[in-house]
Simulated assay, not measured.
Amino acid sequence: MTTVADIATKVRSKNAGPFWLTIDIFCGSPAALAQITQGLSTARVAALFNADPDTLKRFDIADLNVVKFSLPRPQIQGSLRDRDMHGAGWAPLIAEMQLD
């Protein structure tokens, strides 16, 4: 099976403020963008991160060949239970996802 990392040129995650995380999938070409957008459902991404699908935001940005997901952080950034202060640990999880 094909994974996101097999097609994307880069997958990164980062903070989008103390309450949100953002995951960017850089596809590199319109063909790669089409494969990612068709093979990666928002519901599956929400399930991967144990997030409510209604709170997960998805942006397919064709001009940049990017798919972006934003979701609430499970813990507020910098709180005692926050284990990923910069939000960088989320990218490998989505990079390893298999496409439909």
Rank of each mutant, 00 (worst) to 15 (best):
Met85Ser: 02
Ala46Tyr: 01
Ala47Glu: 13
Ser41Leu: 08
Gln77Leu: 04
Leu99Asn: 06
Ala47Ile: 06
Thr3Ser: 12
Ala51Ile: 03
Asp54Trp: 07
Ala88Ile: 13
Met1Asp: 11
Gly89Ser: 07
Gln98Ile: 08
Pro74Asn: 03
Arg44Trp: 06
Ile94Gln: 00
Ile25Thr: 03
His86Arg: 06
Ala8Thr: 12
Ile61Cys: 04
Asn50Cys: 06
Cys27Phe: 02
Arg58Phe: 00
Ile94Lys: 03
Arg12Asn: 12
Lys68Ser: 14
Ala95Pro: 15
Ile7Asp: 11
Leu93Gln: 04
Ala46Val: 05
Ile23Trp: 00
Ala43Ser: 10
Ala47Tyr: 07
Phe26Cys: 13
His86Gln: 15
Ser70Thr: 07
Pro74Ile: 09
Asp6Trp: 01
Leu21Lys: 03
Leu21Gly: 01
Asn15Trp: 07
Leu40Cys: 10
Ala34Gln: 15
Ile25Leu: 03
Asn15Gly: 03
Phe26Trp: 11
Gly17Leu: 12
Pro53Thr: 04
Ser79Lys: 05
Ser79Trp: 07
Ala62His: 06
Leu40Ile: 05
Ile23Glu: 01
Arg83Phe: 04
Gly87Met: 01
Arg81Val: 08
Phe59Arg: 04
Pro30Val: 04
Arg83Thr: 12
Ile36Ser: 01
Arg73Leu: 04
Phe26His: 15
Thr42Val: 08
Arg12Ile: 13
Gln98Lys: 11
Ala51Met: 02
Ala47His: 05
Asp84Gly: 06
Gln38Lys: 13
Cys27Asn: 09
Arg81Asp: 15
Thr3Glu: 11
